[in-house]
Amino acid sequence: MAARKNTKKPNIKPNIAADELKKYYREMLLIRRFEEKAGQLYGMGLIGGFCHLYIGQEAVVVGLEAAAEEGDKRITSYRDHGHMLASGMDPNGVMAELTGREGGYSKGKGGSMHMFSREKHFYGGHGIVGAQVPIGAGLAFADRYKENGRVTFTYFGDGASNQGQVFETFNMASLWQLPVVFVIENNQYAMGTSQSRSTSTPELYTRGKPFGIPGEQVDGMDVLAVKEAGEKAVAHCRSGKGPYVLEIMTYRYRGHSMSDPAKYRTREEVQKIREERDPIEHVRTLLLEGKHASEEDLKAIDKEIKQVVNDAAEFSKDSPEPALEELWTDIYAEAAPQNA
């Protein structure tokens, strides 16, 4: 399903303060500029291996983070940079993990797909498609067991939603009434396979229905719509009614990873969405047309973000390579047997 064209006139709901809108603008812009920089560093050979950029999908995490409260958890797949930045993790630490340096969140052991933060309740970054989904339910189980009123956002993509363990998890989460929001980020392509070529029923928000889990489809290019849906889902979970499915319709502008020849879609398709549906442009228009910010205000934000991203890039280049001994640490609690 192609992302629907947004024909609505931009409008600002009276309960959205200008500051809040600016915050979303800033957060989405940070992700975009960070990812653009990561793409550059990759091209320069400073980032090796896999690198999955989040460009185009920024409104999803920013909208949902706006619906989260302190202590709520998040866990996602390998396209995880946006989630980390939106949860407040340090761009320096994220970028330095991409370059595989000591200053990275996982000291260079995880790479692009595997980063974590206890402080920000971010449970990773998981490189196996769909494998994070039962873990997200387990986190929610622990919350329920501790009766702490927290909710876990468990993100996965349209591709992962065809994994068997996702259905196992839906069943268990509903059976045990776990406070988990299943967020399906539908960017319409499982790597190079379009949804129509991989998925028998395109309405992924109905996937929870056989298990009694309510779901809805959300315009993922509209941060306010995402936030509103997120708040509804979170309220449902927090009230003890069990899990909730959000299918968030989004689009990634870049390839699946850095080595994607992009033969599976036309340049026009990408260009059309960039021009007509861009989530950052959408908020920018809201800000300007609503006279909540001037061009100068936004330029100042742009400048500030550029600085943050440049600093992250510098940090990620300057941070030293991990010491060789680190190869053998964090395997077991005790020292691992070294047979090198």
Binding site: K73, I75, Y123, A131, V133, P134, I135, G136, A137, G138, L139, A140, F141, A142, D143, Y145, K146, G164, Q165, E168, T169, N171, M172, L175
Partner: peptide
């Protein structure tokens, strides 16, 4: 709440256990 049956879903059983353990339980 401490000893319970699961569906026949081995991946789900171990996966949820990992999440529980990451957040302080001992499954």
């Amino acid at each position: 709440s401490r000893c319970f049956d699961t569906p026949i879903s081995e991946s789900g059983i171990v996966g949820t256990a990992i999440g529980m353990a990451a957040y302080g339980l001992r499954p």
